[in-house]
Amino acid sequence: MERGVPEEEGGGWRAVHRRLIFFGLVVLFVVQTGLTWTSSTRVAEGRGTLDEAARRGRQVYQEFNCTACHQFYGLGGYMGPDLTNVTRAEGKGPAYAKGIILHGTKRMPALGVSAAQADDLVAYLDAWAASGTYPVRAVNLTPWGTYREMHTTDDR
């Protein structure tokens, strides 16, 4: 077997540079992770936070695997509608959401959620509704391929 560190195979100073670049990237990753954990949101303080009922609602959402069909901000399964603003949307609201959770629809079976669990789920959905609006409908594109809403720091 061929041994040693021939220069043409990436030995010597080039190998050192590779390690430096690699560890530099890892350091940047750690910095970015810290920033993401601490300052990745522009939602105003106190909005979109979970009270006790909403925390229980999150547990119910996960135990019934609602994410298989539904999304928040477009993230989740695509069988059912996005739920980000369901409790505050025109023509909908908490009672509408609770009714569907308890009784289902033509496409969505009633999953056996109790009335107390449905209240907790509605509290959880309302925390999402307080955090922002989805989808973005105003299409103000920029020459750089972005849209103006993604540059702003105001709450939607």
Binding site: T36, V43, S131, P135, T146, T152, R156
Partner: peptide, 23 residues
């Protein structure tokens, strides 16, 4: 590797996350 570390935020462009993250 750079994309593994930093290129994930296109998943959350429409989420009200910080502008620096998206850019």
């Amino acid at each position: 590797f750079t994309n593994l570390l930093f290129g994930w935020a296109h998943h959350v462009y429409p989420v009200p996350s910080a502008p620096w993250l998206r850019i």
